[in-house]
């Protein structure tokens, strides 16, 4: 189980790196999906090790939430692009200036 958890944490940290470093809104969204998937892998590995089923059920709910989040996030991306003409998240600075 430890091997699975370490792979999951590597993928999670790569996703976190992408969320922090990248400026492209769509790539940030895809890195978020990576983090979701790493968490899912952790859930499945742990519930397999402990002979439980609740982790697997939870993965299904995570997938549902990820689907809802994808629809909303891409709607925001389209609205942002229409407003600014780009998807660079540094251009979202109305509250700062």
């Amino acid at each position: 189980m430890n091997n699975y958890l370490i792979v999951a944490s590597i993928i999670f940290c790569i996703g976190a790196l992408g969320v922090i470093v990248r400026k492209n809104l769509i790539v940030v969204f895809m890195s978020l999906e990576l983090m979701f998937n790493a968490a899912n892998l952790g859930f499945v590995a742990v519930s397999n090790r402990l002979n439980l089923i609740s982790g697997d059920i939870f993965v299904i709910f995570v997938i549902v939430v990820a689907a809802a989040e994808a629809a909303i996030a891409l709607g925001i991306a389209i609205a942002f692009y229409r407003e600014k003409g780009t998807v660079d998240i540094d251009k979202a600075n109305e509250l700062k200036n």
Partner: peptide, 24 residues
């Protein structure tokens, strides 16, 4: 994931102007 969500992502990339979102 690989079906629905990624099709949505690719569709949005297609809807936006790819040359303007490529090199950020």
């Amino acid at each position: 994931y690989a079906g629905a969500i990624m099709v949505l992502v690719v569709l949005v990339i297609m809807l936006l102007n790819i040359s303007r979102i490529k090199n950020i």
